[in-house]
Amino acid sequence: MAKVIGGVFTSHVPAIGGAIQRGAQGEPYWAPFFNAWPPVREWLDVQQPDVVVMFYNDHGLNFFLDKMPTFAVGAAEVYRNEDEGWGLHPFPVPPGHTELSWAIIEKLVEEEFDITTCQDMLVDHAASIPLALAWPGREAPVRIVPITINTVQHPLPSAKRCLALGRAVGKALAEWQGPEKIMVMGTGGLSHQLDGERAGFMNAEYDKFCMDNLARDPDALTTHSVHEIVELSGTQGVEILNWIAARGALGASTSEVSRTYHIPISNTAAAVMVLETEAAVQSGKIKHEAEPEMI
């Protein structure tokens, strides 16, 4: 039986890709972010996931405004990362898990999510950089199912709808009969705004609210409308929708394994979190209970 072992949640700022390709991970500007990753990789070494279900948003590599799906599920054998306009070398992207893709698609439509399916799909930095952070310097040793959420062109799906989408994906994963160990990734955020006179806006208080509630009460993140999330988190901070959906796929009970929050990388308040489920290898060595004041 498949097991859903947990999830890795991370910012996906393109500049991270530049820092990786320049070898700048140890520079004072970058170290606080990259230092988040050794414990994540330790956890991955213990857990040995076979599949990553990746919740992210495309920034204009695969999707343009000519066709903009609210939710799209990849069902390809092969995915590629390509030049997104800045000439970065494409990062390696692991192969797809088409059988699981179709099981997820079947379940989502059964649950009345009217999704788009993609048998030919480029995946942008929002998927490739998190994989490169988790498994640096190589193609991630997993198969993937990419799921994109429109965070570009309003109207965006509500946080409540994204959580429900994630929960429906979680049902598909729970019913999957394969032997794989499955993890999710949710990428983007946290608070940031690239555009407008309010460019540079961040909101640590809202970010902390999101991080504090991600494991224990994700429904708390759905109390805000998309417009309120933009106000609280910035025009691009709405990428928290990807985290919310990914959290939904983990089921009711998760615990927080690690958390890093750092301001800024580029214009963004960056965060990296690991949550695990009861199906994870219980790794007392690296597991941190939440500090009492956070409960």
Binding site: V152, Q153, H154, P155, Q193, D195, G196, E197, R198, A199, F201, H227, V230, E231, G234, T235
Partner: peptide
């Protein structure tokens, strides 16, 4: 939202 432009339809 001051200083913020929603990219809508």
């Amino acid at each position: 939202i001051p200083g913020t432009h929603i990219f809508d339809g």
